[in-house]
Design a protein around this nucleic acid. Sequence first.
RNA 1: GCCCGGAUGGCGGAAUCGGUAGACGCGGAGGCCUCAAAAGCCUUUGCCGGCAACGGCGUGGGGGUUCGAGUCCCCCUCCGGGCACCA
Length: 826
Amino acid sequence: MARAYDAVAVELKWQERWQTDGFYQVDNDDPRPAHYSLCMYPYPSGFAHQGHVRNYTFGDLLVRFRTMQGYSVLSPFGFDSFGLPAENAAIKTGTHPRLFTEERIAELKGSIIRLGAVYDWRREVRSHDPEYIRWNQAIFLRFLEAGLAYRARATVNWCPGCQTVLANEQVLSDGRCERSGDLVEKRDLEQWFFRITSYADELLATLDPLEWPEKVKTMQRNWIGRSEGAEFDLAVQGADGTATDVAIRVFTTRPDTSFGMTYAVLAPEHPLVEQITTDEQRGAVDELRHRVSSSTEIERTRAAEAGEELAKRGAFTGSYVLNPFNDEPVPVYVADYVLMGYGTGAIMAVPAEDERDWAFAQAYELPIVRTVEPPEGFEGGAYSGDGEKINSGFMNGMDVPSAKAKAIDWLEKEGIGTKKVNFRLRDWLVSRQRFWGCPIPVVYCERDGIVGVPEDRLPVLAPDDVEFLPSGQSPLALHEGFVHTTCPLCGGPARRETDTMDTFVDSSWYFLRFCDPWFEDGPVNPVAVERWMPVDEYIGGIEHAILHLLYSRFYLRALIDTGLLTEIEREPFSHYFAQGMIRMDGSKMSKSKGNLIAPSAYFERVGADALRLFHLSVGPPEQDFDWTDQTDEVIDGCGKFLDRVWVSLLEAPAGRRGPLNEADTAMRRLAHQTIKAVTSEIERWSFNTAVAHCRELHNGMLRYGREEAGPHEEVFGEAADTLLLLLAPMTPHVTAEIWERRHPGEPGLHARPWPSFDPELVKERSVIMVVQVNGKVRDRIEVAPDIASEEAERLALGSPRVIELLGGAAPRRVIVRPPGLVNVVA
RNA sequence: GCCCGGAUGGCGGAAUCGGUAGACGCGGAGGCCUCAAAAGCCUUUGCCGGCAACGGCGUGGGGGUUCGAGUCCCCCUCCGGGCACCA
């Protein structure tokens, strides 16, 4: 593309200058008011792709905007540098994950600098740095001490061929290992957990006031999944028909429907399955349990469609339990749709009021008893809404909420059960059987059991002399020198923990380390954290809307409660912005899909400014964007716009002086209206319309320049400077260059304060009033902005078009909304 | 399956509150410049009818509320994201 200026040279010049003058480095004692702007630190996947460009363009815009507004803006950068891809690459190529990762960090960092995004690089944090590992481990030990970290058995994906645990991602849709092709099994292993569930109530209750997208808050609420209900016992029926000592504890959110229980279901993993299954049924039950052991949770909760498929997903145990509400025996089934990890792993099934139970009952020909009268004309199966209770003994005639309360009362009075709040949220499984992660700093001693490595011996680092076998097994467990150690307490022989931490652990507190990455007395400096936190603007992909944000919210609270931080605001991110994804051919752009569009070619072709402008203007930042054949032309168009700005501002004729004419005032009005619009649009993240307003201002300037009288020197200058200031955070290089040429020897563009507008000047002198007849636009009348209702109505009824359409009849009604609209109802 | 979004001209999108649908841009058409082209500049561009004035239709589909609905309510279709070991 032929350009009006050398974009590459201009951009490199300014990038060099921003790096050397340290303008965007901030100290913790900076006197300006503090502002913390943060993009989620990325996993280093190599040269940037358009998703990165989009993210850092938004972030950089805000950093520069807030700086111009007078804040000292903390704008740090780091890398989420542990993770599976580096380990896979190591197995494939034999390169150590550190080398692989650091090469990719250098590549990504290069792309980001080339984009013109500015950061305080002195504060760079990388998860795999020994210093970060040290403090990561220190926090783990603190959690262990506080009882927030614990060990328990958990089910994992196990590949018998590779002899290792697999990530869900490594299990193909047919249930086989992506590496060996072996059928993946479920195995129970001892794992480390963080007790996030003890914060479930707080994490839910404090969501409301956050300035986050409503949909993200909803997702978090659903994820935590608080539900109120009851837990109670179902006694297993003995051979003589009476209750035995064995009871199945069930959780239900609908205790009011208990009279409609026609069967009960155990999760296949439930410990009582073995005991209550009769010999005749054992074959079928075992077969089901085997099948379930190789299916995922998503498969298990899928498909309420009755019929053949569903019929294979359950099995009768041969036993019966007694419904305590009516003492009726009901059969006990095992079925995959009941999960051991939720509630008690057992349910009472009420097909009339639960969809999954309904489908199951259909497939197994189990009876269905309604306990809520569905509304008239209801034709579906299960009815879960409110209504009058029927077939429900002492609850008959009540509505659902009162019946619920009554049922719980009754259970408690009878001593069979209790009111119970359940969460869908499970504790956070943090251990990974992998090499490229932060080692869990624990040893196992025969005498002293689980012993944390003392803080002064941290970090526990993985050895470098390891071999990556194509089995996928973590080399840590095979490294004799690493595994065998001594107990810090008794000095006797001990075995090291060879599991590493989930990378979500690393990313749950990096934003706190950024506040003072030099701090040596602990993971986080409470004073620096008090200064900068909470993050004022957090920007990142919607794919992190649940886990990362939830874990970070938990972490900050846990750090405060374990004394590592002072009693500060417990929410880490007061404002979170979820940027949309870039899609190609209908799916998310990602390295694994091989549909990445590298920005480097665009840096050469049109420059970083044009690419930034494209990402800002193409659509709402929160919305997904489809990269198509047309996209290149749009990006070129952004380059052409910058060319026109360059030419029109640097090659403008001198202009006239003296008094202002009408066109001059109109030009000034447009400039000030644009300041007003763009400022509020940046504040509310409407970058695409902010760009459109800048373009309108420029179009207005070109029109103004063609006026017969010619442009006024000062008026044109004011408009030109306004345009540069408004574009400064968006396209920083070219605007800085034009500014320097227009204002040689003066302070640079980005050091200037953000422009303000004259509130008197932005007021329009007249507006177009729309006159409707029966809601259709029939006339437009120019009126004063402060026109009175009576006057507006008089003008509208006087309109020849309105008179014609009314045909002499009096209007039935006139709706007046001055100054914009009058609607005459005929 | 469950949870969360989205759908507006040929295309990306605009329309803080229920009040002119289509800002801004891409593409198209016509013109200027040029020996010619590229680039650049100017005009025009929702669809249908009409010389025009103007009229009709129009925000995925169906229904509703309202003087008035892209916007609010109900139902449906299609597309995308997340689902706990990818990050």
